[in-house]
Design a protein around this nucleic acid. Structure first.
Lengths: 218, 218
DNA sequence: CCTACCGATCGGTAGG
DNA sequence: CCTACCGATCGGTAGG
């Protein structure tokens, strides 16, 4: 027995949803308002009865999209969790958000650049805050001994986020493996990879990663 | 004592180089021929004395770019190398190619979609061949026992390539860490991560990654 | 490589 | 949400 009144989405929601798909596939600059109008089923000018501009559409998608990813911040609140469990939960949350809408993830990861100021700075700050969740987990892991102390936190975070952010490029709900299995596979590889190992950093005889200056997370 | 005749690059090379930077920063569809002309220092129509079209410019950049990455295929020829050493060399080669020109890498990874057929299919085939290098290394590692037999090769390759392909988003030659150190850090994390571990695949009690069908590498 | 220009298309609007 | 349209800009070309 399913509720029949599933909530009629507003026309603005329809436009936003169409824009996510087109921005994801052809990029923001590669999508025209006429493309969106045609896919929605109205004439180009009619879109402006529901939205103020093309850029507002992108801003809404990016802001709500990053906000969705930011829900994984909750994993930090479970104090009982070890850094490994914390990282696994964060990876699961991230892949869940990707699987929920891979095209939206693509827009969030690549199209925010086309926002004008000050929207662009807002998006960058939200992304920075998201990355910071992973910084905290990895730093906690280094402190607890779960992860190698030889790790450069900045590079470790980019390694993890890189592997995760590539997922929307290949994930398909019709693919052979479920999102949950993908998340656990990524978590296994990344968590084991961050552990200490006798040979780490000795590959070319280097004692540790040499720095030219202060660490800095973009 | 340096040779003074450094080779005067042709105007076409200049145009291509400018296009790499603009396509990398604003995307193919976000860059106009007028943008390129202004940056080169000629009037828009003058570009067509050197190139046939905007898309030819993209095709050249993408083809030469992937070809640069394909030079890492050579690591497969060293039969004496263990899969671990092979993977480390491949990662080093990849990061070298990224560091050599991060913007070109960005175009190779994201702008090939805007090629029309049959160029697009050619680019996809070259990318598939590149990914196949990593498939072979990981399969060899699974066979030799270097990497976990529980690994799904397809997911493992995407994990590695995801971490590597994200590098141009954050790498800077003026950054605090050298490209060589970045490559070795990535190699450490990924190689250790792919090894077998008692708890792998047991995170949620799953015996192995369940499949809905046959494996398939995009 | 410039002058001068082409038809097509862009994001967006006035008025209903 | 449509009709009808705006000025700006697009990739590309002819002729020199």
């Amino acid at each position: 027995m399913k509720k029949v009144a599933v909530k009629t989405s507003s026309q603005r929601d329809t436009i936003t949803d169409v824009a996510i798909r087109l921005f994801g596939e052809h990029g923001y600059t590669g999508t025209t308002m006429r493309d969106i109008a045609k896919a929605v089923g109205v004439l180009p000018g009619s879109l402006y009865a529901h939205i103020p501009s093309k850029e507002t559409l992108l801003l809404d998608i990016v802001k709500q999209g990053i906000a969705r990813f930011l829900t994984v911040e909750h994993v930090l609140e479970a104090f009982g969790d070890s850094p490994e469990v914390c990282l696994r939960k964060a990876i699961q949350g991230h892949i869940e958000a990707v699987a929920e809408d891979p095209q939206r993830a693509l827009v969030v990861f690549h199209q925010w650049r086309f926002l004008g100021e000050p929207s662009r700075s807002t998006a960058i700050e939200m992304r920075r805050r998201y990355a910071d969740t992973f910084v905290k987990i990895i730093d906690a892991g280094k402190a607890s001994g779960a992860f190698s102390m030889k790790l450069d936190t900045r590079i470790a975070v980019f390694t993890v986020l890189g592997a995760l952010n590539w997922a929307p490029e290949w994930y398909s709900p019709k693919g052979p493996v479920t999102a949950t299995d993908i998340a656990n596979s990524l978590a296994d590889t990344l968590i084991y990879g961050l552990r200490d190992a006798p040979s780490r950093g000795k590959a070319r005889g280097s004692v540790a990663i040499s720095r030219r200056g202060k660490p800095k997370l973009a």
